[in-house]
Design a protein around this nucleic acid. Sequence first.
DNA 1: TATTGTTATACTCTATAACTATA
DNA 2: TATAGTTATAGAGTATAACAATA
Lengths: 160, 160
Amino acid sequence: MSNPQESTSGNPDRATANPDRVDGIELSTELRSLIMRLGRLLRNQRASSDITEGQLSPLAYLVRNGPTTPNKLSKWERVSPPSMNRTINSLEAQGLVVRTPDDNDGRMVVISPTESGRELVYETRRRRDAWLHHQLAALSDAERQTIAEANTILRAIIEP
Amino acid sequence: MSNPQESTSGNPDRATANPDRVDGIELSTELRSLIMRLGRLLRNQRASSDITEGQLSPLAYLVRNGPTTPNKLSKWERVSPPSMNRTINSLEAQGLVVRTPDDNDGRMVVISPTESGRELVYETRRRRDAWLHHQLAALSDAERQTIAEANTILRAIIEP
DNA sequence: TATTGTTATACTCTATAACTATA
DNA sequence: TATAGTTATAGAGTATAACAATA
């Protein structure tokens, strides 16, 4: 798992004040490279008829967390409001979400998934995750546990 | 860290044959969402004068691993050969890499970083990683260790 | 005929700036 | 004046298809 040559407790990097070197790697640099490449791989992991990852992701958020505003969605997904607006337009045109004006505040709208949107999330996610699921299944329980914990830590970091 | 409500050893998900539920989360789905959002955050983490993440990443590879072919680069970065070719064109136009014909095989070219390219990687990486570095520094040793291990596991999975 | 690199073309994602409507 | 949403516009990233040169 970790590099046995450098992961000893005697590793000076662990003892000194450089938290970016762990087990002999520059953690922030390595992590940046991993995220970029893994992200491309996951985005490419879809049939041409599927909706794109950028559309599936906010739709899945709506299905899981319930209706919310465009602003909340853009913050969650870490894109600009106009970018999210375009994504919502696309989802709406496909009949996967609906816009509803807010009764209390006339400036706001609420985005909700349609039944069709809900179904698409379940179906697509199942097929889309097949590759990653397969990779994870090949790992040990301990390795999956490590990834789950890293996921939790990193999600806390990027919480909007 | 993990959800205490579901992370007990008695959790049926852990004992049964569904490796995609760990500590009560759908690991592949959660991971996909994390990768997308964290990737956007990292890509946005740059001054407007910096080169883009898509350019920095292969340039950094060349600096770390030495000259290689466009094909190798595209496989490593998980982009198509034409996409990588465009990136190389851009880097070459900026004087950050050079193309050299291969002596043995006339079809091949080798991409090498220039001295200017090397310097840019070091400078940019230092500034670019500042945010992530800062976040990691706020974690405990154990948490950084977990992330480093997850990094190693996932890199092995996407190895081209 | 297969492989490596490249060009042509089209489409998605993304941001910044500007505009509209409401608070 | 501030906020939420949207439209306008432009640029970067990406892929597939087609082409050229060499093995």
